[in-house]
């Protein structure tokens, strides 16, 4: 049987920077929003209250379709703490179609599927209702809808 990397990974909840409130409010709704700098006309990652390219604070938090491509990955087979009982699980870099690259776990994925270039979509996971919704990615199962 093929190895399967299941959902249900730990979701540690660090303190949230109030500047990133728009991100977390959207995540609560299951939506991925990216901060776009209105001067640079580009999104950036990770979320903060200003653009790290130009320093501008004129941001638009716009909803992303959450589609992306696995840029690289590793199957973690040995880990400590709350992660110890979750091996094997996948750590990846995912390049969103919007152009930013995000470090995240890939879940709901089989060893056969897992590859550089795999198309994935954003999902949010939380182990406890009091945890933050943590951004993760799962392989696309439905045919992709082209954005207009």
């Amino acid at each position: 049987m093929s190895e399967y990397y299941a959902a249900g990974l730990p979701t540690p909840s660090p303190e949230v920077d109030p500047e990133t409130e728009p991100y977390w409010a959207a995540a609560e709704r299951g939506e991925l929003v990216l901060p776009h700098c209105q001067s640079c006309r580009r999104p950036f990652w990770y979320p903060r209250g200003f653009c790290p390219r130009c320093g501008g604070a004129d941001l638009r938090w716009s909803v992303s379709d959450g589609y992306g491509t696995v840029h690289t990955y590793s199957v973690v087979r040995r880990a400590g703490g709350v992660w110890a009982s979750k091996v094997p699980f996948v750590l990846a870099l995912v390049t969103l179609d919007a152009g930013v690259t995000v470090q995240a776990n890939v879940i709901d994925c089989s060893a056969e599927q897992l590859a550089i270039g795999l198309r994935v979509a954003a999902v949010f996971e939380r182990a406890e209702s009091t945890d933050l919704p943590v951004l993760r990615f799962a392989p696309l199962r439905e045919p992709e809808v082209e954005s207009p």
């Binding site: 949230v16 920077d17 990770y46 590793s74 880990a79 990846a92 995000v102």
Partner: peptide, 27 residues
């Protein structure tokens, strides 16, 4: 770090540096 909520394998509560280097090796 101000990135702590977005660094899934940060040095707090993460699973160690090997995975970060494995990403490089795979690529």
């Amino acid at each position: 770090s101000p990135a702590v909520a977005f660094q899934v394998n940060g040095y707090q509560g993460g699973y160690g540096p090997v995975a970060d280097y494995a990403l490089l090796a795979r690529r």
